[in-house]
């Protein structure tokens, strides 16, 4: 029966690996990953849970500059050269499904993706 046990063990291990991969994939999807995009192009995505405190500068003088701050699981636009400053006034964002931070003049969007949010959309 030793061989059969081994075969079963191999099969079980395979199933277990699939399970773990599926779970990891799930939790990654449900996590708090901030996606920064400009002109509809993804610039970078940051896992807010694990990312160190940092500032990220997106854009240039021509397309407009936004300085983004990441801190303790949340993200915001710290500074921007746009006229209306709506993106800065938006403040911190930390939940998936929440209202994205948008800088219309600079075509910048910060969105938190995943299934981890408590709401499907925010009206306002």
């Amino acid at each position: 029966m030793k061989g059969k046990a081994k075969w079963v063990a191999v099969a079980l291990a395979a199933v277990l690996v699939i399970c773990i991969v599926a779970l990891v994939f799930q939790s990654a999807k449900g996590g708090t990953v901030a996606e920064i995009s400009k002109d509809g192009q993804l610039v970078c995505s940051i896992d807010l849970k694990t990312a160190p405190e940092q500032t990220i500068t997106v854009g240039d003088a021509e397309s407009g500059i936004n300085i983004i701050e990441v801190q303790k699981g949340r993200i915001r636009v710290l500074q921007a050269d746009c006229k209306n400053q709506n993106c800065v006034e938006c403040g911190w964002s930390d939940e998936a499904g929440g209202r994205p931070i948008v800088c219309l003049p600079n075509r910048l969007v910060i969105k938190i993706t995943g299934e981890g949010g408590r709401v499907d959309a925010v009206s306002g």
């Binding site: 964002s93 929440g98 925010v122």
Partner: peptide
Amino acid sequence: WKVGVKDPFGKSSYVAVLSVADCNVV
């Protein structure tokens, strides 16, 4: 669906949650 109503004072993401379907929330 769960639809948050944005916090007009900017202290949090939203101040209320509406559980609604097949409608508009503006």
